[in-house]
């Protein structure tokens, strides 16, 4: 849905609204439950106007009770509805971790029944300190039974939330705070993006960066700088961490033999470690040298803007990582 000027494209948050709105038209079992949704439209305007359009049946303002919010969605999903539980910040999911990991994720395995539940939250580093900036996606990807979406742009937000709302499985839907206001084109009502299919953001000749979420933006900036030095780097946006597009990962390793895996979660025990390890096991002969990972240090995120930025990959760090693999 191309519009005439860049400013008329919807934001990343509005793309979420658009996808949810279209899916409620299709399926009246969808409802959103969270805090401050009806008047405020959510902390990132992600559901603004939906209560007014569809009624309070479809948007429920909840007490600040994360465990009960997730169990409300869980029980309703087990009953056959398709709730979106909006937890605002993924940091707050830690108050509902039993409901997510012990309950929602395991029900299909034990009882053979679907759990069509979406848990939406913002994720990643921005201002706000240690309790509003966690990147917990590795934890959820680690948990059998959960799917994890990490869109980096408006098009993917809309296409992925539409797919999530047609899925019989619990989906953790993580939107990056720093992308909330970024505008971009979105697909139409029939544009669904499958989970487990990465997107090639930019093709390249010399090396590949495999990444997702806000780090895609960092990679794009690095690619521009690298291009001025004659290095043409491919960028692959995973879009979902589970299912994981292992075909795209293996293909990148085989084609380039020089690969950087990047995100802003703490690197210790992270999804980037998983990707580097399995890609190395599967494609050792294709590698010109070790896969290089960049990510966050193993430290809480500071409220200080300088310290917060220092914790996560900078454009310079990305450039250095690419140069390292290109030098193999």
């Amino acid at each position: 849905m191309t519009t005439s000027t860049q400013n008329q494209n919807p934001t990343y948050s509005e793309a979420f609204q658009s996808g949810v709105r279209e899916e409620i038209y299709r399926n009246r079992d969808i409802f959103i439950l969270g805090t401050d949704l009806i008047e405020r439209g959510g902390h990132f305007a992600q559901v603004k106007g939906i209560a007014q359009e569809f009624g309070f049946q479809h948007v429920k303002d909840s007490p600040i009770s994360e465990a009960a919010m997730v169990s409300a969605g869980l029980g309703a999903a087990m009953y056959g509805l398709h709730p979106i539980i909006d937890l605002n910040f993924i940091d707050f999911s830690l108050g509902a971790m039993d409901e997510i990991i012990n309950q929602a994720a395991k029900i299909r395995f034990m009882f053979g029944q679907p759990v069509p539940l979406v848990i939406r939250a913002t994720s990643g580093t921005a201002l706000g300190g240690a309790h509003h900036c966690n990147s917990l996606e590795s934890l959820f990807a680690h948990t059998a039974g959960l799917a994890v979406a990490v869109p980096s742009n408006a098009w993917d937000v809309k296409g992925l939330i539409k797919t999530a709302l047609r899925s019989p499985d619990p989906v953790i839907f993580l939107m990056h705070k720093k992308l909330s206001g970024v505008r971009g084109e979105i697909g139409d009502e029939n544009t669904l993006i499958p989970f487990g299919k990465a997107r090639t953001v930019k093709e390249g000749k010399h090396a590949a960066i495999i990444t997702y979420g806000f780090t895609v933006v960092t990679a794009q900036k690095a690619a521009v700088a690298l291009a001025s030095e004659g290095i043409d780097v491919e960028i692959i946006d995973l879009r979902t961490l589970y299912p994981l597009d292992t075909d795209a990962i293996n293909s990148a390793v085989q084609r380039f033999g020089r690969v950087v895996v990047a995100d802003e979660a703490p690197m210790f025990g992270s999804i980037t470690a998983e990707i580097a390890a399995t890609a190395t096991e599967a494609n050792f002969g294709s590698l010109k040298g070790p896969i290089v990972r960049i990510g966050s240090v193993r430290a809480p995120i500071s409220a200080n803007p300088g310290m917060s930025e220092a914790a996560i990959p900078s454009v310079d760090a990305m450039i250095a990582a690419v140069k390292k693999v290109v030098a193999y």
């Binding site: 009960a68 869980l74 029980g75 309703a76 087990m78 056959g80 509805l81």
Partner: peptide, 17 residues
Amino acid sequence: GAGVGIAMGAALGIQQR
């Protein structure tokens, strides 16, 4: 304690429907 939460969610489903 998990059963009450699930039952509450089911009650929400019943009410929604």
